[in-house]
Amino acid sequence: MFEIEILTKKGFKNSRGEHVLSDICGLGIENVTKVEYSSLYIIDGDISFAETETIASDLLTDKITENYVIRQRDAECLSEVISKFSDVKEADMINPNFSVIEVWYKDGVTDIVSESLIKAVKDLGIAKEIKAKAGHKYYLYGEIFRVTLDTIATKLLANVLIQECKVY
């Protein structure tokens, strides 16, 4: 099972992140200084790394504005980064001043992006039965208490009825 993260390249506007930041301010939360959004996909099935890379580069990434990172992922959590482009936020990764909220649909909830993704993978000539999942990842910068992160996750980013979020 692979996880693909699509990140906005440096120098391009992360509109969705900016929107979330203004929504966070709207909640009266002030110590979040910046939000970056990236989309997440999980591809599961009898699929090779090379094929996953094709999916990431040819389908999921806009070459002009985005980069991708592929991670091997087991059911529970992500593990090491096994492929990435050079300018992916390395500096940011070691910056302690950010937190992450991931949002995924719960199993059984209709996930239409993943349905389209499966069709598009077939168009790429990858004729394998795969399962896919689409999720969202928000990097929040600033000194933020866990309880505040939970508030942001549940009051803004996810509806816990149908989605689950991981905060870390």
């Binding site: 389908l59 999921l60 806009d62 389209s116 993704l117």
Partner: peptide, 17 residues
């Protein structure tokens, strides 16, 4: 295709392929 992934992306891939 719902503009899923990104607008026009899935169709442009399909046409190219």
């Amino acid at each position: 295709y719902g503009d899923d992934v990104a607008s026009g992306k899935i169709l442009s891939n399909e046409i190219k392929n």
